[in-house]
Nucleic acid binder design. Sequence first.
DNA 1: GGGCCAACTCGAG
DNA 2: TTCCACTCGAGTTGGCCC
Length: 652
Amino acid sequence: MGTSSDGGRPWQSYTTAYTNAKAGMDGVDKDKVQRVVYEMSKGSKYFENEQRKEAFTKQKVEHLRAQVVKLSEKDILHFEMIANKRILELEASRDLSKIWLHTDMDAFYAAVETLENPSLRGKPMAVGGLSMISTANYEARKYGVRAAMPGFIACKLCPDLIFVPINFEKYMFYSELTRKVFRRYDPNFISTSLDEAYLNITEVCINQGMSSDEVATELRNAIFEETGLTCSAGVAPNQMLAKVCSDINKPNGQFILPNDRKAVMTFISSLPIRKIGGIGKVTEHVLRDALGIKTCEDMLQECALLRALFSSCSSDFFLSVGLGLGSTTTPKQKMRKSISNERTFRTTKDESFLLQQLGDIAEALSNDMDKECLSGRTLTLKLKTASFEVRTRAVSLQKFIHSKEDILQFASRMLKAELPLSLRLIGLRMSHFSDDKIGTLDPMQKTIVGFLSSDATGLSAMHIENKDRPNIGDKVEQQEVFDFNDRQSMQGMEVGLPSIDDHSGGRHDGRSFQCESLQSVCSDDADGFNMNSSCLDESKSSISVEPNRSMDPVGATSTSSHKAGLIWVDDYICSVCGIELPPSFIEERQEHSDYHLAEMLQEEESSCSSGQVARERYRFMHKETQAGESSSRKKKQKVKHIPIEAFFSKQV
DNA sequence: GGGCCAACTCGAG
DNA sequence: TTCCACTCGAGTTGGCCC
């Protein structure tokens, strides 16, 4: 982003959610749009935050590249064999018997506003405000104006742009009209938003003796007659492809992909991965720059790398994309999982103002919950600082709440624990709803939180007011001493293979563990949060060691190889747990061996009366290898399995 | 080993 | 002059506990 390598055109590398092409933007001078966006953004806090985020993505890319370099030819062949086997399995699951139709209303909000106010017709118009645009009509898109773009930037691109405020009631009314039409074709249609839906039109095609092309035309005509609005449609053998197809002939058009394997594979071969739902800016960047994957076909070409570097569920998703596979079933009715309310305001550190905002948000959230008869027990506070850094703090309660008073009580505690802080956004989210809607069940009856808590008011997992000593639940306070960005930047790399970079003991919770153990190690210090680093390192393993005991390193090493009994079956598979690691991943294999050694020592410890020898041996080995922290990750990877249908948002 | 938890990222519309 | 939203779902992690 704006480096010396950009040839004096730094805006070309500044990409946002709104600098990519969208329907109706084919003739737009992309370079000009990017330059304007860049010029209006550079130097701002927002811009700086975007730079930080991009730096983290680049770290991910570099990490993956390093892993690729380490793979030997033998490794590649090995993973290619596994990937090819998986491709055959996925291919066998291909279902070409269903016909799915995806509809997408054309510039929905803008079209509704124009329908109700015809004087807007033919003029560039956007729904939203100076801070953010929700959608823009096709006249505005010719200037590069589009959804998710700040209004003040849109004004620069199109000085004559007309702004219309959002009116959700109107959009919901028209959305319901479209749904009445959808029901005629598929009573169980899947609505993904006010203006999009998936319909299984298999039966309609068979029963009415119509082609999918004819059904799509008829449906679009019906929607126009009922609403006066146009929409686009895509037809394909599955939902993923139908969604891609509906974008091809936008606006007011349709595209039919036949239920034929050859047609699907031809269609998918040159399709950019960014067109696939679930692959966004970050994933595209990582796959392109680390593995050279640009099209869906590339996913199959690089199947060995995908299998080697990502978890099985991630690589399954990528391979499915390469094969043009997607969901062909209608899921059961989904229940709401959370409800939230947030608002942005002018950056301030005025405590009374922030608490006033919090009260308003709590009231709005409570009203929204009452409308849906919801009552929840997990309350999450979201904060956005002046530098656009987002923080969240959550509390799980002993009772289900929904009233403004209850919400505000717990939200205020969390907010006050963070102040003083300069903020630009506050949000509240409620989750873990009661089954009986607004109810009085005791949710903590079988949970450990209630066991830990002595707080009769309901605050259990947090101990905000207790600043005197560290506590397992003191996540809010411990956050203060932890640079979460550093940790988070590496988080996405920990897929498929254990990370060699992370010996820190984990994230915030890892630190909280360290702080807790310091209570015994550094008991002289009244304030558990001001430990120096050496003290933290010392406490890492949370073991107190008697100084006079000694350990024979040779003996310890031989125990490692002998008693853990770890061999690599077929050069790749751990004989103890079955996890797969290529021979060239020397450090990772060493970590893995250490993990099993630690396991073995733990067993030894439990059968030994004092356990001291085993602990010291472990401590010695741990220090020698600088490893052992990623062991639980390996365990998780081994057992984790997510069905392909459920995996529609990837993790990288 | 598995469920739960808190804090976080990513993506969508 | 104005200066980058809001809502929701789904995934990850390490730690805790039974």
